[in-house]
Design a protein around this nucleic acid. Structure first.
Lengths: 143, 143
DNA sequence: TTATATATTTGTATTATACAAGCATATAGC
DNA sequence: GCTATATGCTTGTATAATACAAATATATAA
């Protein structure tokens, strides 16, 4: 297979995958799970610690107003907590709460189960390699 | 790396990738390109031939009414063409037009260029393997 | 020939989003 | 120190994609 065909296949499969994954996300958040946006916010706060609205917006490449609303919703659900930055009164810093951690953990568990299931026939070696390639692809994903 | 960690990495990277890819799609369809939905519809019609609304909806797991509108829009733009099924007057069959093929080709070219760019440092072997793994993942992606 | 089922379209509500306006706070120029 | 400007966030408003429900046209079955 030449280079063009390999890249074509990658593009084809990733496009297909995105459509399916978005569908799954949308149907699952109706049965009580976190939607994509919330999952990403909680994941980021847990991984990198407190963040302000602007940072989150930049991280997900969404408008600040969108993140302002999303953080407001998560705050309302008690999944994240707002505090003010002592050095700048305009800023809201958000931290994941204990409840948020629990919800994130449960949600992640479900997501992992889906992938475990999908990839159950793969060898460990294949899974490792796939993860590694995905990570490299994302590292190169600038715009 | 044990199995759980490998799958965790896969889930993490794919979730990240989806967010970025959705962003790219949304920003690019504002500068005159096809949005995801149209791209998928054209791609399917070109690959598998004429299809009816119901089939397209099932294929993308979207509501029939959504596809009815999307096909209407594409028809209005001259990218697909409606014909009636001689054996069933209720059915609309859609076929990609020449203009649709051109638009699809141009759009695909752009998408491929992005991936070519992202993966330019990869060896042919890696690209082939990555495409193969993605394909296998999608084959196992049931719901 | 009428009742029921199916394919599609159209009406309506919801949701995620962006952009613009407004408000509070911070920083810079004088 | 005081006013002008910049920044961070929230809130108002518009748009677009979507689902669900109602309506319409056609097909199939009783």
């Amino acid at each position: 297979m030449n280079n063009k065909n390999a890249v074509e296949r990658i593009e084809y499969e990733l496009t297909t995958f995105i459509r399916r994954a978005v569908y799954i996300d949308n149907s699952e958040n109706k049965i009580g799970n976190l939607e994509r946006a919330s999952y990403l916010i909680l994941r980021q706060l847990e991984e990198f610690g407190p963040a302000r609205v602007k940072e989150l917006a930049a991280s997900f490449k969404l408008d600040i107003s969108t993140l302002s609303r999303q953080t407001g919703t998560l705050e309302g659900k008690g999944l994240i907590e707002r505090s003010s930055d002592p050095s700048d009164g305009r800023v809201s810093l958000f931290t994941i709460t204990e409840l948020g951690r629990e919800k994130l953990k449960a949600d992640k568990k479900m997501r992992l189960a889906r992938y475990q299931n999908m990839l159950e026939t793969w060898s460990s070696k294949e899974k490792e390699l796939f993860g590694e390639l995905l990570e490299r692809m994302n590292e190169a994903f600038f715009d």
